[in-house]
């Protein structure tokens, strides 16, 4: 079981980083996973083409909570293009073949989620915060949705 519930995941589940509402967010969105009842709200503050701040709120399983928490710590300060690329890599990792090589340098701490690909039903948990963030940014109507 350690493969899925890595220490880092358990830690971020217990003490989620950036779990707070954001008064001056430039965009926000709701995410819902009806399968397990996870509800999340993601806030983001975009300045120019950079994510100045990102946070979340809500209840979920350990995988979705830790994923949201690690998403915020990984994306803060990144450009929108960089964020999109990280999400693509992350998504490819959790939906990929078990045992497929993972670019740990590019993913950093997010590589702890590689065990998720062994458990297809948990992919939704691991990506809920990411999809919600994407929806928030796209809906905010910035030039970010393109390319």
């Amino acid at each position: 079981m350690r493969e899925l519930y890595q220490e880092l995941i358990l830690d971020h589940n217990k003490k989620p980083r950036n779990r707070r509402a954001m008064a001056d967010a430039t965009a926000d969105a709701d995410g819902f996973n009806p399968l397990c009842g996870d509800k999340i709200h993601v806030f983001v503050k975009v300045e120019g083409d950079r994510i100045a701040d990102v946070s979340f709120d809500g209840i979920g399983c350990a995988i979705s909570t830790a994923s949201a928490s690690l998403m915020t710590t990984s994306l803060k300060g990144k450009t929108l293009a960089e964020a999109r690329e990280i999400f693509e890599r992350f998504h490819a990792m959790v939906t990929g073949e078990p045992g497929a090589p993972v670019d740990e340098d590019a993913l950093g701490k997010l590589a702890v989620f590689q065990g998720v690909c062994e458990f297809p039903v948990r992919v939704k948990c691991a990506t809920l915060a990411w999809h919600t963030l994407k929806a928030a940014i796209e809906r905010s109507g910035d030039a970010v949705t393109t390319e």
């Binding site: 079981m1 979920g60 399983c61 350990a62 948990c125």
Partner: peptide, 22 residues
């Protein structure tokens, strides 16, 4: 402090099939 989804997952690894959700 533990979401049912995580309970179900860990139980599964012990061979125990339970239902989690609504």
């Amino acid at each position: 402090g533990v979401h049912p989804h995580d309970i179900g997952q860990i139980l599964d690894q012990e061979g125990v099939a339970v239902r989690t959700g609504h």
